[in-house]
């Protein structure tokens, strides 16, 4: 899947989970700005696992360095 497609899908998930306007989400935006802290990440992961059909362990140390929407797209791509 193209990176841009992944980003769009992540934006869609983020908009749904965090109840924000999808068009306002920027690839460089920090997830914390949408309320996704360590607790929120659990909710986000649940949706990402379903949409991308992947398994994510929230204890994965790589996940700790995910800060932006783009970082998350890279992470998801690496899990596919």
């Amino acid at each position: 899947m193209e990176q841009s497609q992944t980003i769009e899908q992540i934006k869609h998930v983020l908009a749904e989970v965090c109840e924000v306007d999808q068009s306002s989400i920027q690839p460089g935006g920090k997830l914390l700005g949408y309320g996704v802290d360590s607790v929120g990440m659990v909710d986000l992961i649940l949706s990402l696992e379903a949409v991308f059909d992947i398994a994510i362990d929230e204890a994965d140390p790589t996940l700790a360095s995910v800060e932006t929407v783009r970082d998350l797209a890279d992470y998801v791509t690496s899990r596919q």
């Binding site: 306002s24 989400i25 920027q26 460089g28 935006g29 920090k30 914390l32 700005g33 949408y34 932006t68």
Partner: peptide, 10 residues
């Protein structure tokens, strides 16, 4: 702060 985070400019 939230706006800055959403722009990736924190």
């Amino acid at each position: 702060i939230c706006e800055r985070l959403r722009c990736g400019d924190d």
